[in-house]
């Protein structure tokens, strides 16, 4: 009984996200349509014969109406047939497959580092709210959210790689490194990525907790003499789990912006750098596939955030 309402809500969320993804795919496809000139001519270069252009146009379905091409492209996306890169003719699927694990590794390590750090910061700031500690955390987190990632990255490289020689400035790895070597390689990129995300997550965690702390049952606990730490951890935290899970998922979606900068500055062979390179060479099939992949990850994270909010709301869960 009770699960029915929740399942229906979650089902509606998933459905809405699928529709959203479709709308995004349409936008991404229209982006390609804006490109002036015949793609087949661009691929073959200046010296192409008319026959070659006509042949390639037919092979790429360029003679078909745009709506049909969109459907063909969409079908290819779903079935994993992503077409060929315009620059070197490699299969887009193979290019992405070679880079995706690297990006997932970087993102996973960042999540592993930033979630505990952010929770610790946010919860302690909520326990000692109004104190100097809380003020300092608040100012530092606002500052780190409003600073560009490349400033954090360049300062980190300057201090730890150039001045102190502790860590390498580039995140180049060939997979055979030892554990200590791996840590050395990943320390700077992960730290840079975590910087803004931890700040964002800590602020949202604190806000969620403080919101709960203002309710009257918490006031009751305070009045009967419960120590502050116990009030926060025992009374308030369980009721703030939903908003906090929501905050974590939303903050992790900011990874998408950061990873583009971090992979570029540390010369890390990941998916985001593949996409940046593709943009500078206007390699549209590759850009489309990367953009769709990134948007899917993004929507998944937002979906997790929504589901966490639904599951943690007792009014919905226990109806």
């Amino acid at each position: 009984m009770r699960n029915k309402v929740v399942m229906r809500l979650i089902g509606a969320r998933i459905g809405a996200n699928v529709l959203l993804l479709l709308a995004i795919s349409l936008l991404v496809f229209l982006g390609t349509e804006l490109l002036p000139g015949n793609v087949a001519e661009i691929v073959l270069g200046q010296g192409a014969t008319l026959e070659a252009v006509a042949g390639l146009s037919a092979a790429m379905h360029l003679n078909q109406p745009a709506a049909l091409r969109y459907l063909i492209w969409l079908g290819g996306l779903v079935s994993g047939n992503l077409g060929q890169s315009l620059v070197n003719g490699d299969s887009v699927a193979a290019l992405i497959a070679s880079r995706l694990p690297n990006s997932l590794l970087l993102a996973g390590l960042t999540a592993l580092v930033s979630v505990p750090a952010a929770l610790a910061l946010g919860i302690t700031a909520a326990i000692w709210r109004g104190t100097l500690y809380d003020r300092v955390v608040s100012v530092v987190t606002i500052a780190s959210v409003s600073v560009p990632e490349f400033l954090v990255a360049t300062l980190a490289v300057l201090i730890f790689a150039v001045r102190l020689h502790w860590l390498p400035a580039l995140a180049y790895f060939d997979g055979t490194d030892s554990l200590s070597g791996l840590i050395r390689v990943f320390a700077l990129p992960v730290a840079t990525l975590s910087f803004a995300i931890v700040a964002q997550m800590a602020r949202m965690t604190r806000a969620a907790l403080v919101n709960t702390l203002e309710s009257s049952y918490v006031e009751m606990a305070v009045l009967k003499g419960t120590p502050p730490a116990r009030v926060v951890l025992w009374h308030a935290l369980p009721n703030a789990v939903g908003p906090i899970a929501n905050a974590i998922a939303l903050s992790l979606s900011f990874l998408l912006g950061g990873i583009i900068i971090v992979e570029t500055i540390f010369d890390y062979p990941g998916l985001a750098r593949l996409m940046v390179d593709a943009v500078s060479t206007r390699d549209m099939p590759l850009i489309q596939a990367c953009a769709m992949l990134f948007c899917t990850f993004y929507l998944l994270l937002v979906l997790f955030a929504d589901i966490a909010a639904i599951l943690s709301n007792p009014r919905l869960r226990l109806r």
């Binding site: 959203l20 995004i24 936008l27 991404v28 982006g31 390609t32 804006l34 490109l35 979606s253 998408l256 912006g257 583009i260 996409m275 940046v276 593709a278 943009v279 206007r282 549209m284 850009i287 489309q288 953009a291 990134f294 948007c295 993004y298 929507l299 937002v302």
Partner: peptide, 14 residues
């Protein structure tokens, strides 16, 4: 719900 930098990259490419 579009990631901003991603959208900007697609626009600049196009």
């Amino acid at each position: 719900s579009l990631p901003g930098l991603m959208f900007a990259l697609v626009m600049v490419a196009a």
